[in-house]
Structures are given as structure tokens and as C-alpha cells.
Amino acid sequence: MERNPAMRVTAMPADANVYGDIFGGWLMSLMDSGAGLVAARRAKGRAVTIAMDGMEFHKPVKVGDEVSVYAEITRVGRTSMAIDTQAWRRDRHSEDEELVTSATFTFVAVDNHGKPRAVGD
């Protein structure tokens, strides 16, 4: 089964330390953004991150790598959603992908005043 990424970007030098490894915070931000896109579509409006569980880094991401973020809703409550999110890296000259990290992000649908609302309202 082919899956489509929530987002895909190329890691740039400004995102890395002096050794060329991408900062973990940059990767976490990218995953939060990808999960946020999925959450906003499901919520049919604004959704905010309230938690992130279980992030562990398995492989480094290097400058020039293509990073793909995949996000799948695994639970929907009245106002919240759990979204399993994975980041994969691929050398720009290869078709081989490696799992870099994964985590579960929890989002809450909110109204224009920042108050929780039912998902999809």
C-alpha cells in the first residue's frame, strides 16, 4: 500500500550542528507541523498540540537528506485526536528510506477563543 506524506522537506545547513547532523528540535517541529496539518483537516478548523509521547531517535538526519513525515489519526475523542507520526530520511540520490523517529501527538480542536470544541464542529 502506498502512503502519502503529510509533508516532505530537504534538511538544510541552517538546521544542523557543526557535524552536519540535523537538530532533534527541528525534526520534532517538522513532525508537529505534519501532524497539525492532519489534525486541522480532521477538526475542520484550528487544532493545537497538547502532548507528544515516546520520541526516540533511531538514525541521524544529515544536511541534504529528504525528510518525509507521515501522520495517521489513531484515536478521535470528543475534542481530541491522537496522531501517530513518523519521520523517514532518504539520501537525495537514493530510493532507500530509513525510519528516523516516531511519536504520538495529541491535538485538541479549539474555537476562535482557544476553547476546546468538538472535533469536526
Rank of each mutant, 00 (worst) to 15 (best):
His58Gly: 00
Lys44Pro: 03
Gly54Trp: 05
Val100Asp: 06
Val61Ala: 01
Ala103Trp: 03
Pro60Arg: 10
Gly45Leu: 12
Glu98Trp: 08
Arg117Ser: 01
Pro60Ala: 02
Thr49Gln: 12
Met52Leu: 14
Val67Gly: 04
Ala51Pro: 00
Ala43Thr: 09
Ser68Asp: 12
Glu98Val: 10
Arg92Ile: 06
Phe57Asp: 06
Arg78Gln: 11
Val100Glu: 09
Gln86Glu: 15
Val100Cys: 08
Lys62Ser: 11
Phe57Gln: 00
Phe57Ile: 04
Lys44Gln: 15
Val110Pro: 01
Gln86Thr: 13
His93Phe: 13
Gly120Ser: 00
Leu99Trp: 08
Thr74Ile: 15
Asn112Ser: 14
Thr49Lys: 09
Gly64Asn: 04
Gly77Arg: 04
Pro116His: 05
Ala47His: 04
Ser102Asn: 12
Val63Thr: 14
Val61His: 01
Gly114Gln: 01
Glu97Thr: 12
Asn112Tyr: 04
Leu99Val: 08
His113Ser: 10
His58Ala: 13
Ile73Trp: 08
Met52Ala: 15
Ala82His: 12
Ser94Gln: 12
Phe105Asn: 02
Asp53Thr: 12
Ala118Asn: 11
Gly45Ser: 10
Gly77Asp: 11
Thr85Arg: 06
Thr101Ala: 15
Glu72His: 09
Ala71Gln: 04
Met81Lys: 02
Ala103Val: 07
Asp96Ser: 03
Thr49Leu: 03
Val48Arg: 03
Lys115Phe: 01
Pro60Thr: 11
Val108Ser: 00
Glu95Thr: 14
Arg92Leu: 08
Met81Leu: 10
Val48Lys: 00
His93Ala: 15
Thr79Phe: 08
Trp88Cys: 08
Ile50Phe: 09
Pro116Leu: 06
Phe107Trp: 07
Lys62Ala: 13
Ala103Cys: 15
Met55Pro: 13
Arg75His: 14
Gly64Gln: 09
Ala71Thr: 11
Gln86Phe: 09
Thr85Asp: 06
Thr104Lys: 08
Asp84Thr: 12
Val119Tyr: 03
Ala43Ile: 10
Val69Ala: 03
Asp84Gln: 15
Thr106His: 06
Val119Thr: 05
Pro60Asp: 02
Ile50Thr: 15
Asn112Leu: 06
Tyr70Ala: 07
Glu56Leu: 09
Thr79Glu: 09
Ala71Val: 06
Val110Ser: 01
Thr79Pro: 00
Thr79Asp: 08
Thr74Arg: 14
Glu56Ile: 11
Thr79Gln: 01
Ala87Leu: 10
Phe57Gly: 01
Ala109Met: 05
Val108Cys: 02
Arg117Asn: 02
Thr49Asn: 11
Glu66Arg: 14
Glu56Val: 13
Asp111Ser: 04
Arg46Leu: 04
Thr104Ser: 09
Val63Ala: 04
Trp88Arg: 11
Glu66Asn: 13
Arg89Gly: 05
Met81Gln: 10
Glu56Thr: 15
Ser94Leu: 09
Ala71Phe: 12
Val69Phe: 04
Leu99Phe: 07
Leu99Ala: 08
Ser102Gln: 15
Arg89Asn: 03
Val67Gln: 01
Trp88Leu: 14
Thr104His: 05
Val108Phe: 00
Ser94Arg: 08
Ala118Arg: 15
Met81Asp: 09
Ala47Gly: 10
Glu66Gln: 13
Ala87His: 05
Glu98Lys: 11
Thr74Gly: 12
His93Arg: 14
Gly64Met: 08
Ala51Asn: 12
Met81Gly: 05
Gly45Asn: 07
Ile50Glu: 11
Val63Pro: 07
Gly45His: 10
Val100Arg: 02
Phe107Val: 00
Gly45Val: 07
Ala43Gln: 10
Gly120Arg: 00
Ala118Lys: 14
Arg78Glu: 13
